[in-house]
Design a protein around this nucleic acid. Structure first.
Length: 420
DNA sequence: TAGGCGTGGGG
DNA sequence: TCCCCAAGCCT
């Protein structure tokens, strides 16, 4: 990329003049071109805070409706602080990175408990809030309080890497710190909020990753990347590892008897992936079989995979149900995992025969004796779950879906299921 | 320090 | 279809 001893074209301006040019032109451009966004209506630090958390790794267009709904439901930091976690998560459903919501909720409680219910205007105190890192600290301090603290995100690193021809790998933390020093030195006196937003606005509207619109850029004249024809090669960033694949079997368990019309869902653990959200029961399938059987058509190999899934549900989750009817295959890609899911409807009406057979019955009987002594014999009309797992599970109807937070992939599955 | 942690849109 | 990515933080 950058060669040893290569000579690059530079601007004729000295460093000081170049910085002054950059700051002045960019600020001027921002004042004329800035978008009208909900969180720009006022400088309420709580609103700024919420918006900045939502905007982490998330596009403006995606955030807008979530922000409006969130602010209607939790207009003040006090109201957020006293809310139920589940309701906060429900408000965040579909936005992703759900630890942001849980951390924001924790942060709101911290504000009420430690800062008298007022979002602090001190850099160290702001940075102490759960979920608020270096970028968000700078964004809150500069936008809400107009304090000259840098707010360096991916946009800022890209924009400054190009203009100043910086060749450090922006995936490294050290690079962000060095760019923070540069960014501080660019902030015009008394203009921290607008200038920091101007940097990001330029990155979002003009100096974009794939196809920068240089001809509309207010600082094109002295942009080092542009002068050297290198705007598409900057910034330098090491590539992320591709997500690993996981093959998963999912069941929609249809209730019978009192639970007719309902399905079985469960809540995920308090930590880790999709923490505390609700989901359909599902299992990680053995690597080889999952991979092999998913390559066949669903219908062709259905009996084998359905049977395996049923046995695994009994042995691992101790869910006494029988998956039979294939519903759909669906992919869901996280940043680091690729879920390849095969969804079955579990037919409880034939579970009796199922339970009579071979090792399934053995396992089922031992479970019943151990942890569910009151369970009536036969499994045709009820579902048993191992006692210590029972708290996680719940029967819900279609309308209950509106109360509980579900990850997007399960929302999609259930939409299809209920649309048929 | 590097990996865990979601989702939807654009080229 | 595939790949990249977008206003990061936590551990």
């Amino acid at each position: 990329m950058f060669k040893e001893n290569e000579v690059y074209i530079g601007s004729p301006l000295d460093e000081q003049s170049l910085k002054q040019f950059y700051s002045k032109e960019l600020l001027h451009w921002y004042r004329a071109q800035k978008r009208s966004l909900p969180w720009r209506e006022n400088k309420d630090p709580y609103r700024i805070w919420v918006s900045e958390i939502m905007l982490q790794q998330t596009k403006v267009d995606t955030v807008i409706p979530y922000f409006q709904r969130f602010m209607e439901r939790f207009p003040t930091v006090q109201q957020l602080a006293v809310a139920e976690e589940e309701e906060v998560l429900k408000c965040w459903e579909g936005l992703g990175y759900y630890s942001r919501a849980r951390n924001l909720h924790t942060g709101a409680k911290m504000v009420v408990e430690h800062f008298g219910g007022v979002v602090p205007n001190d850099k160290t105190e702001v940075a102490s809030l759960k979920g608020v890192g270096p970028y968000t600290t700078g964004a809150i301090m500069s936008i809400a309080f107009n304090e000259p603290v840098p707010a360096v995100d991916g946009n800022v690193m890209r924009v400054l890497s190009r203009f100043f021809l910086l060749q450090d790998d922006i995936a490294k933390q050290k690079t962000r710190v060095s760019i923070e020093h540069l960014a501080v030195s660019l902030i015009p006196e008394g203009e921290a909020g607008d200038f920091n937003q101007a940097l990001m606005e330029l990155g979002a509207l003009v100096c974009t990753p794939k196809a920068p619109v240089c001809l509309t850029c207010p600082v094109m004249e002295h942009c080092a990347a542009r002068l050297n024809g290198m705007e598409l090669q900057l910034p330098i960033k090491t590539k992320a590892k591709p997500p690993r694949s996981e093959w998963r079997g999912v069941v929609i368990v249809e209730g019978s008897g009192e639970q007719t019309g309902k399905i079985l869902v469960r809540q995920r653990p308090e930590t880790g992936l999709l923490a505390q959200m609700w989901e359909l029961p599902h299992l990680l399938l053995p690597e080889e079989k999952g991979k092999q059987w998913f390559q066949e058509t669903a219908t062709k190999k259905e009996p084998q995979l359905a049977r395996l899934l049923g046995e695994m549900l009994v042995e691992e989750q101790q869910l006494i149900i029988r998956p039979t009817q294939w519903l759909m295959d669906i992919d869901h890609i996280f940043s680091h995992i690729h879920w390849k899911m095969r969804v079955y409807i579990a037919d409880t009406s034939t579970a009796n025969d199922w339970m009579q057979s071979d090792r399934v019955a053995e396992t089922a009987n031992s479970i019943a004796e151990e942890s569910l002594p009151d369970q009536q014999s036969g499994y045709t009309t009820s579902i048993t779950v191992k006692e210590e797992l029972a708290d996680m599970y719940r029967w819900i109807g279609k309308q209950d879906l509106e109360q509980l937070p579900f990850p997007n992939v399960f929302v999609r599955i259930l939409q299809q299921y209920w649309s048929e």
